[in-house]
Nucleic acid binder design. Sequence first.
RNA 1: GCGCCCGUAGCUCAGUUGGAUAGAGCGUCUGCCUCCGGAGCAGAAGGCCAGAGGUUCGAAUCCUCUCGGGCGUACCA
Length: 590
Amino acid sequence: MAVALRDRDMENYLRAALVRVLQTMENVPTGFLPELSVPANPNHGDFATNCAMQLARHLLRPPRAIAEDILTTFMSKEHDPFYVKSVTIAGAGFINFRCSNRYLYRELETCLAHGSDFGRSSIGLGERALVEFVSANPTGPLTVGHGRNAVLGDTIARLLEWIGYAVTREYYFNDAGRQMRVLGASVRSRYEEVTAEKDQSFATSARAVQHRHDYKTKQLAGGARGPVTVPDSFPEDGYLGAYITEIARELARVHGPDLLDAKDNDCFEHAAKQTILSDIRATLERLGVSMDSYFNEKDLYNTGAITATLDALRANKMIYERDGATWFKTSELGKESDTVLVKHTGEPTYRLPDIAYHVNKMERDYDILINIFGADHIATYPDILRGLDVLGLDSDQIEVIIYQFVTLMRAGEEVKMSTRKANFVTLDELMDEVTPDVTRYFFSMRSAQKHLEFDLDLAREASDKNPVFYLQYAHARICSILQKAAEISIVSDPTLARLSLLDHEAESALIKEVIQFPQIVVNCAQAREPHRLAIYLRGVAEAFTRFYHSCRIIGEQKEVAMARMALAQATGITLRNGLAILGIDAPDRM
RNA sequence: GCGCCCGUAGCUCAGUUGGAUAGAGCGUCUGCCUCCGGAGCAGAAGGCCAGAGGUUCGAAUCCUCUCGGGCGUACCA
């Protein structure tokens, strides 16, 4: 059930009323739209407009005088007591609106009636959105950095769904090219190591005996803790992670020593890709991320999209050959140098398939295309956009969201990570340590463009210091109260509750907090900024806790108890729905 | 060198896209457990919004420069 709330809410009423008021005034620029804001300071009312100040230069009159005129006309022609309790002029010319209790109660009823759909809206009109994220190549397990990407992308996807978009979550992976070849060679080398072990079941076979005789090792510099011993065949830039050996061991278990004589590394590469991809998928599922589509780079080769893209760029005269390589004239498009698309070896760099992939995306006719990239892509994605522009596509349709890197802190010190040589904390290890809920919250609570400091000690702490528990605790407490009230047979029926009994300061504050939720969801979705939701929910939990401490439910007179239970229920709904968008559990008890 | 991001309380960060006296959490200090879950609440202290100019009724927010940090700047992804 998607509900259009916006045409009925206070903000839209005020906006429309103000527009009509301004139409009666002279010298107001055509198309002028009054701004409305929710003042940070409650003394400034529930909504405020600065339009008198903005109009001062056009009307050549003092802002406060203009505000007086607006106020007079508003009160005589547009004032609707259902919404507005009072209007005042303050400061340099702000017009402050205070909303009526009746309006607050109606919004609260809306919340209770919509329940698990409270906060949904249909402003996306069912349009289609594609969010591409994670997109890590299947060369190893997902790391903490990928975790931030996954949570950001998935939460933006959920936000868009809540405002009425049909969202596809897509994972694009490069499974052609050099990285995958090195991966295959690494697995083969480890396979040689494993099959040379004396305690293998096939150790006495002739092939295995021969192999043990031939097998050699070498020292390789640059492991996580200095030089490491590897098989002689191990590639210089091979993958040193233990997961490579595990894949090799599995191959040895199934095939024995038979693969030692394989003509190429295809079977090793294939096995590695399958295993790693399914591990990645499992990690994402554990984090609550479910991709709709895994887009495979190889398909772009198989369908001819790569060569078609190159030909199209060539037809636009943006391609030339030099030193055996094929170059894209990016220097003519605002970059300081040209860019190689096809190496002298005949193999494309990743940029060409990336352009072809984005052409493919645009051909699939989405209304919104979002890419989530780490800060390390900051210099590379513009090449893709330039490619699309050359091909006559509108690259402005592609929204790129760049997030900054994550620093893990343990015992007050940074956990150094080097992804290259298997010295990294995986996303699974992180979730083992602090649970998926905490992982999601910590990745959601900061704006994407800020470096994120992930304090493992704080995250692991199950106490008030941990913001996740504060939210979940508030929800659990609500459930507990409602259950306890039911046990002593206080009827909990929001439709019978007399909400007008909610007139305590802490009650109004909580109501105002709760009823903002639908608009917050819209704002977060449109700004693609999930962290604002996390911050808002903290405020809801805080307002509830204040209410809880100053307004009792059990033990109060029956009518009051029922009204307060309704408010508690509404708060529970808001917390539950908000946490659902963040992909976090809202437990009944802790 | 060049490009992008960032600099706000001791620490980690918000700041509704240019508004009113710049706000939270943690840490520190002071109160509060006969009471629906104390994983809590009430309060205090803590600021030249890195610095300097500019734009205007009004700047943490926009422009320029300087300083400091991060990420890039491959025929790696």
